[in-house]
Simulated scan of single mutants.
Amino acid sequence: MAHGKPHEPQTYTVGELAALAGVTVRTLHHYEDTGLLKPQRTEANYRVYGPCDVERLQQIMLFRACGMKLSAIKRTLADPAFDAQRALEEQLAELRRQQTNLTTLIGTVEATLADLKGETVMTDKQRFEGMKRKAVEDNERAYGAEARKRWGDAAVDGANEKLLTMDEREWSDAEELERAIIEQLRTAMETGDAAGPEAQKLVSMHARWLQMHWADDTYAPAAHVALAEGYVADPRFTAYYDEAAGTGAAVFLRDAIAGQLS
């Protein structure tokens, strides 16, 4: 049972806290081994968890439930500027975005099933609404935190809204242009000249693709160059371009963009 006299902070053994939080003792041990949670020790070397430990465990579990990796949680909690209230407000906003996207996706699946059963006729707008919502959700999950930190909430929200308001033709055009960019990237790389005509065409196509996705009137050459630098700095983007167009593709694209727009 939990320990503590009246007016004294309540404390828990490792087993008690595990039962209270609905996790295993092994999980608490792992959090301790990784430096996420550091209980006090009794003279007999038993773990004792106080109010601060309970609060920290809740924060860890909330962040985990939101999809954060333990390494990211550790960095967040160790940051001297960490603000628990602000962090939770941001997570709440993210959960609400996910809730909206999931609700829309469920509605699309339900409407598709009803259409297949002959119960209703599904409009073209309905067919693509769920796909667009899923694209926004996937992008937020993969890159949202970094993008919001670097570009700000307004820029990211504007880009998401731009995608969600695309009609079927705009959606198809954007996907076709993305495929064409990869083909042009391969072609430009074969010339070995990041400043040549094929590279110039590549940069123009890439700029047009960004303008299709970014909020109106937000495209700027400097932002384009900064984004391209991110392609090389972030292994996820590097892998995307290198796997699609060949080793060195991300660097070549960065060099072409920087050479023309800097």
Rank of each mutant, 00 (worst) to 15 (best):
T13A: 07
A21M: 15
E55V: 11
L185A: 05
A44K: 13
Y143H: 15
S204V: 08
L105K: 15
T112K: 01
E140L: 14
A245P: 00
F63T: 01
L185S: 01
D193L: 09
T11Y: 08
Y240V: 03
R75G: 15
E161M: 10
R64G: 06
M131G: 09
L70Y: 08
K69M: 08
R150W: 07
W209Y: 07
V203Y: 05
V25R: 15
T104W: 01
L164V: 01
G107E: 07
A215L: 00
E168P: 02
E110D: 14
R150E: 12
A180W: 04
G144L: 02
G15P: 08
T238R: 15
E32R: 02
R186H: 06
L253Q: 04
G22C: 02
M122P: 12
Q59P: 05
I181N: 08
V14Y: 01
A93L: 10
V251N: 13
G50R: 13
T123S: 14
M166N: 04
T104L: 11
E55K: 12
G22S: 03
G230M: 06
Q184V: 00
D157T: 11
A244W: 06
A226D: 08
A145P: 06
D173P: 09
L253V: 05
L37G: 00
S262W: 02
Q10F: 08
Q85S: 12
K201D: 11
L177H: 03
Y240I: 04
P9S: 11
A180F: 04
K5Q: 15
V136E: 09
M166Q: 07
Q58P: 01
Y240D: 00
A244P: 06
A159P: 05
L113Y: 00
F252Q: 02
T123Y: 03
H30T: 01
R96W: 01
T24A: 07
E8W: 13
L227P: 00
E170Q: 11
H3I: 14
Q91Y: 02
G196E: 09
T42M: 09
M1Y: 15
T24L: 03
Y241C: 06
Q40Y: 10
K38A: 11
R208G: 10
G130A: 12
D53E: 14
K74G: 14
A256H: 03
V251H: 15
A226G: 03
M166G: 03
L88T: 13
L227Q: 02
S172H: 09
R141P: 10
V48G: 04
Y143L: 13
W151R: 13
K132C: 06
E161P: 10
R150V: 10
H224F: 04
I182C: 05
D138V: 14
P51E: 09
A256G: 03
L88V: 13
A18H: 08
L57M: 10
R64N: 05
A19N: 15
T11V: 12
T100S: 04
R26H: 03
R47W: 07
V25N: 13
G259E: 10
I181H: 06
P235E: 02
L113E: 06
M212P: 01
E178N: 13
F237S: 06
A258G: 10
R56K: 14
